[in-house]
Nucleic acid binder design. Structure first.
Lengths: 188, 188
DNA sequence: GAATCCACTTGACAAATGATAAGTTCGAAG
DNA sequence: CTTCGAACTTATCATTTGTCAAGTGGATTC
C-alpha cells in the first residue's frame, strides 16, 4: 500500500509513513456484502489491497453505477466524508476484498501533523479530479458505442470483473442498449 | 481573493497569505481574448477577480464547452499543469476580466514552504473533484431537458452570462436541441 | 436432475436527439 | 441608416436510444 500511495504522492519519509500506517486497521468483506449502506455518513477511507468494489446510487428504484474500483485502490465518498452528511452513494463488494481502513476524523488530525500526509491528500484529490473530468468528457464527446469502446480499450479489467448490466448504467445506457451495441460491434 | 480562498481552505495565518500573495501578478484580458491557446502547456493558476471565462475543447471541428467560470474563481488546466504536457483545452474570455496569476512551478515551491498552502491545494482539488462528479451524475441520471432545468436552477448566472450555443454543448446536446427544449419548457 | 433465478439477449415499437436546411432577430460594422 | 454576420429558432426527416415483453443460457438450490 505504501508503494501504491507513493506512486501518486511521491516518496514519503519513513516517519510520515509510520504515522500514517499506525492509524490503519485491517478489514475484510465478502462478495455481495455492503461496505457502505445508503444514507449512512461515510466516515472511512478504504485502502483496498485485494478485490473489487462498485459504487452506486439509486435513481427511481434503478441502480446506477458511478464507479468501479479494483485493488490496489484508495477510495471514500468524499462529499459525505467532508461534511458528515449521509451518503447518497452505496458501496458493495463485487469480490472477496481486503482493506486497510482509516477513520476520517483521524485523517484530519494527521493532516495537521504532517505536510507529507497533507500532500498525499492533495495529490489523491488531484488525480481523482482528473479522472472524473476525463469521464465527463466521454459524455460530451462520445456516443454510447464509442463510450463502450473507450472503456474496453482503457479499462478492459472492468469488463472482466464486473457485470454488464452495471457497466451499462456506468456508461449511461440501459442494459438492453449495451447488449445491442456489443452485438453490433462483433458483426463489424 | 484571500476571503474567497479561505472560504474553501479555512482560515490562513497571515504569514502563509503573505507568502502566497507575493507570487501573484496582476493581469487583464478583453472579451473574446484567448487566455490559454490550444496545445500550449498550461503553466498558470488564474485567480479571476472580475469577469467570466469559458473552457473548451475541439471535437471534429466542433467546439465543446467543458466549464464556465465566473469571478471570483480560481482555475487552471490541471492535467496539463501537473505534467507539463500541451493542454487539449483552451480558455477564452467571455467578458473583460481581471486576474491574479500564479506560476505553477512557483506554486510547487510554495507547497514545500507552507503546510497551509499545501492545504489550499488539497481543499481546492477536493472541491473541484466533487463538482466534477456532480456534473457527471447529471449525465447518468438526467435526460437533456432535466439537465437544462438543473443548470437553470443551480447555476442561473450561467444562462445570463454565456451564449446558449455554448450552454448546449456543455449540456451534451446540439444548439438546435437546446432551443427545442427551451420552447417545450415555456409551453408547459 | 429438476426447478428456479438472474444476467444477458432479442424483437417491436415509441420517444428523444441529431443532421440538415432555412428562417428570424439583433447587434455590430461600414 | 443600411448591411452583414452570428446567434437563435423552427421544420423535416433520419438515427439513436429507451421501453416493454419475451426468450435463452448458465449457475445455484433443493
Amino acid at each position: 500500500m505504501r508503494e501504491y500511495i507513493e506512486q501518486i504522492s511521491g516518496k514519503l519519509p519513513d516517519e510520515a509513513w509510520i504515522l500514517y500506517q499506525q492509524n490503519l486497521k485491517a478489514m475484510r468483506s465478502e462478495k455481495g456484502q455492503l461496505i457502505l449502506g445508503l444514507h449512512k455518513p461515510c466516515k472511512t477511507i478504504w485502502h483496498m489491497t485485494k478485490g473489487a468494489v462498485r459504487k452506486l446510487e439509486m435513481d427511481n428504484g434503478i441502480e446506477k453505477t458511478t464507479h468501479f474500483y479494483v485493488a490496489p485502490k484508495v477510495f471514500t465518498v468524499l462529499h459525505s466524508a467532508l461534511t458528515g452528511e449521509p451518503s447518497d452513494l452505496s458501496i458493495i463488494s463485487e469480490e472477496d476484498c481486503e482493506f486497510l481502513t482509516l477513520d476520517i476524523d483521524q485523517l484530519k488530525i494527521l493532516y495537521q501533523q504532517s505536510i507529507y500526509i497533507e500532500r498525499v491528500g492533495r495529490r489523491m484529490a488531484e488525480e481523482e479530479f482528473i479522472e472524473e473530468f476525463s469521464m465527463r468528457r466521454m459524455f460530451l464527446k462520445l456516443d454510447a458505442l464509442q463510450r463502450y469502446e473507450y472503456l474496453e480499450k482503457k479499462h478492459p479489467e472492468i469488463l472482466r470483473r464486473f457485470q454488464l448490466k452495471d457497466v451499462a448504467t456506468f456508461l449511461g445506457v440501459t442494459p438492453e442498449t449495451l447488449s445491442r451495441l456489443r452485438k453490433l460491434r462483433l458483426s463489424v
